[in-house]
Nucleic acid binder design. Structure first.
Lengths: 200, 200
DNA sequence: TTAATATACGTAGGGACCCTACGTTTATCA
DNA sequence: TGATAAACGTAGGGTCCCTACGTATATTAA
């Protein structure tokens, strides 16, 4: 059996140093060249061998997750905050706008969203999809109070926005994304008392 | 100057044959392994050298476009049809559902949508984005009659759906996409239609 | 039929990238 | 200071992208 916690060796300093350097290099590389940037390039940039990169991050996804862990955590925390401070619809709206900000800040990372919100390859993306929780909770609250319909998948809000984010090159993509948030929120309202939209 | 049309040599039979074989092989490969499948694999499958593939399709985008030209053309034509047969909202709804069907049929092609509806790399995707026209027209008609708001980018409807389509692995993705169509349509209405909404 | 020529073809190879095996170095702890 | 676990780098096989270049062949005109 492996040693228990008390008897464990302290992690080596060089290992931790290199881990940090890799994350830093990856953050720059992702921002500059997109999520598909070569891992060897990242390793070179971090002044570390390619084998070391693989030792720390066996898959590309794990590196991506590590790079954005901080931002994702912040996003999750602001969801908690908004849920206590705002009404369901306003909370979700603001949170989705934060998500858009996040997408905006990560220039060229739209493709990597697969990693963070769940993408096409179930085996490729095994990292826990941490953004699943907050969006689900935000929506559930609105469903509970009857302002949101419940016949849709909360996750798809993120996927839709991430789809819109693919248009980054255009100058006004962020405006577009903001409008999309508005459309989504309007569209997911449960029918107003006056009458249904009737379109079927 | 190059010879004018009357004096032009007939295209070589082997060239046309190989072109067809490449498209066929690519269609299979895309369906089976996704849009990122190796071009060399496609060439092997078509029993043709890699150089021949590049001669016929200098870029991956051109191959993708060729593979789906038929389907995209059909989609464009049904937009025309729907515009004459249906009221704006119903026409757009049905057309978006056709688009979802299209995404569904192209198992694993969500990534390739960049090529067809306009993706992240303006230089990468130079092929004419033929789906831009129909969605614009369908939306414009609804804007003209006042049932749709006009402060959004029609293109983003496609992008949003293509984002949702990234979730293919889940069994119910198509249901999800259908719900998303509903949400989008509801969200883009200019006002809750008090009277009978425009469909009969 | 055959010669001429445009057209298409395949082989080969450089360069980038992914990933792993394996031997070496180094930081920690006794 | 020596032992040992932990981390490191080099090297290399395999795949892929893309191009250069010489060869083969379908078409057309003689």
């Amino acid at each position: 059996m492996a040693q228990e916690s008390s008897r464990m060796r302290r992690p080596r300093a060089d290992g931790e140093r290199n881990r940090v350097r890799l994350i830093e290099a990856a953050k720059h590389a992702f921002a500059e060249k997109g999520a598909a940037v070569s891992l060897e390039h990242i390793a070179r940039e971090a002044d570390v061998s390619i084998a070391t990169l693989y030792r720390h991050f066996p898959t590309r996804d794990e590196l991506i997750s590590a790079v954005y862990q901080q931002e994702v955590t912040a996003l999750i925390e602001s969801a908690d905050q908004l849920m206590t401070d705002r009404e369901p619809a306003a909370a979700l709206r603001e949170w989705l706008m934060l998500f858009v900000e996040f997408l905006d800040a990560k220039h060229g990372m739209a493709e990597a969203m697969d990693t963070l919100i769940g993408g096409p390859e179930p085996l490729y993306s095994r990292t826990p999809q941490r953004l699943d929780m907050p969006v689900k909770a935000l929506v559930a609250r609105g469903v509970a109070t009857g302002v949101f319909r419940d016949d849709f998948e909360p996750h798809d809000l993120l996927r839709a926005l991430s789809g819109v984010a693919h248009v980054r090159p255009y100058e006004n993509w962020k405006w577009s994304a903001g409008q999309m948030v508005d459309i989504l929120l309007k569209g997911m309202q449960s029918r107003p008392p006056s009458g249904g939209t009737g379109i079927h």
